[in-house]
Structures are given as structure tokens and as C-alpha cells.
Amino acid sequence: MIAFIIRRLVILPVIILGVTLITYAMFSLLSPAEQLAAYVSSPTQLHGGTAAVERLIHTYGLDRPIWERYLNWLDNIFHGKLGWSTYANMWVSQAIAAYFPATLELAIYSFIPVIIVGIWLGVLSAVKQNTIIDHLTRIMAILGWGFPSFVLAIFLILIFFGILGWFPPGRLSTWADLVVSNLTSFHFIRYTGLNTIDGILNWRWDITWNAFRHLVGPVFTISFLEWAILLRVMRASMLEVLRQDYVRTARAKGLPERVVIKKHARRNALISAVTVGGLLVLGFFTGGAITETVYNYRGLGYFFVFSATQLDSAAIMGTALVISGGVVLTNLIVDVLYAIIDPRVRLE
């Protein structure tokens, strides 16, 4: 197992290097004038005509050979900067670190209900196939899967903030933001960047409560969309396993149904769920842009999408690097979990 993990870790930099080469090669297809769009949001900045254009292109090094710029960028990576993001107005590595806590907080609170509800309902639905529970669960799953996230997000924010005033957008209310920004007499210490946790650590339960209120909307939106996927996979996998000979044998041996389901069926059915779970985890970190936009909840997904729309080349390449690293690491974790769940994998 350890050799397996080491092998995967060794491959990691090779994959990441490959990703950087491909991304950079793609950028080289753009002309300097196109790449200039990241720095010129309006032609009013081009006072002086073509001479101004040339000066801008030279200033940002867009006239240098691609290999030279690529090496500069690699140098940036080794210095832990990943280039300057024109969208975030900071180094890409800083930006990723700055956006990460919001996404992590969202992921933590979203992932738990997704895993518990998804797996539990998936198993329940399969075991109670074609009963009213199964039908209801499937309907909810289809609804969850069928909801466009922006519609659900807007709907929820309209009802629960617009009408009821319960769950506001953003990460904190204005008063709470002033507290954590140390603009009141209270000295607030940032320990983790997670508002719910930092509130407790600073013994400011009002901040924690406020942060929770802001989390409800995006957590519910993301969870409702994601658990449906896990449920469907778990249900299908469970149904397949339940038809296997070894399950029939277990039942024939007279084992209690609870044991058959938990020890023999569910464990094997989890393999598919783990695969999907790995993708879901990655999705939490990269794919929440729409939900984050509607709730004005600035996380990594928001950063990825908005920097890409502004042709922020450093951010695009930096995030490609991070995402590819994340994919490799997630796959590694999934493979390890396979081995834990299924002894045959270990034997291979």
C-alpha cells in the first residue's frame, strides 16, 4: 500500500508539469494583443494609439518568447507566487489561500449532509425497492438533480432572506464584518479563516451564529443538488450488489437481514459511492461558482470562474495547477479507500 501511495505521489509533479505545459501552450495561441485584454478593460487606456499598445505589451512582457515567459512562470511557482492575478489583485497563491477558507467552510458543512443523507437514503431506497419510501426518495433525487442551481439559489435567497430575513447573503453581516475586521473595540483573532470556528475560538458566539445564518443558503443549495447524485449511485450500486450470489448465500445461511445489508451488501456497494464522493469533494472546491455568485459567498469556485472570464492568465494557469494537483490527490485518496473497503484491491 505504501509503495502504491509513493508511486502515485511521484507521478504527481509529472502530471502537474504536463498540465502547466498544456495550459501554457494554449495561451501561446493567443496573440499579445489578445492577452492584453487582461490588463486593458477599456480602450480609453490606449491614449497614444498604437504606441500605447506597444508600450503596454512590452511592459507586461507579452512580446517575449513563450518559453521565456514559461520559465519565468515556473520561477514564480518555485517562489510560491504562481503569478499575479489581475482579477484578485494579489499573487495567485495568495488568492487561492485567501479564497480557500470560505470554500472549505462551505464544503465541510455541505459534505456531511451529502454523505450521510446520500448514502443512507441510497441504501434505504434500494432495500425498500418499489415501496413508497423508494418512490419518494427517487422523486426527491430527480428533483435535486433536475434543479438548475442558480434557480434554486435565487429561490431560496428570495424566500429566506427577501421575505423571511433569516439567511442573508455574503459570509457575515455588516456589524459582524466590522468586528472580524477589528474595526470595533473588540480584538478579533483570525485563527482558521473559518468564521464559525473563529467565532467560537474568540468566544464570540454571535459571530458564529451570524456565520451559520449566512451558510445555510449556500450549504442547502449545494447539498440538495449533490446528495441526489450520490443517492442515485448508491441505490444503483446497492441494487446490483443485493442481486449477487454472495448476498443470496448470506441470506441462505440465515444471517439477520441487518447484518446482510450492513456487512455484506453496503460495504461493497460503497466502492461506487466512494468514486462519486471523490468527484463531489473536488466539485465542492471548484464547481460552486454559481451558488457562490448568487449568495455573494466568495470562494474558490467564484475566483476560478471570474478570473477565467477576465482572461486572467496567471490565475487560470495557477488554478489549473492546483486543480490538477487536487484531482491527483483525490484519486489517490479514493484508491486508498478502495483498498480499505475492498480487500481484493489490496491483494492486487
Binding site: I142, L143, G146, F147, V151, F155, L158, G162, I163
Partner: peptide
């Protein structure tokens, strides 16, 4: 089916939003 459902649900929700929009307390 899923696509249709997606559109139907989306349309229904937009209708709800449009209706609820007027109810937002100022």
C-alpha cells in the same frame, strides 16, 4: 426526461420567484 424535468422545474421556480418577488418585504 431529465432535461424536460429540469426545464419544467426551472420554469415553475421562476414563476414562483416572479410571484414571490412582489412579496419581498422592503
Amino acid at each position: 426526461r431529465h432535461l424536460n424535468l429540469r426545464w419544467i422545474v426551472g420554469a415553475a421556480l421562476l414563476l414562483l420567484i416572479a410571484t414571490a418577488g412582489g412579496a419581498v418585504s422592503a
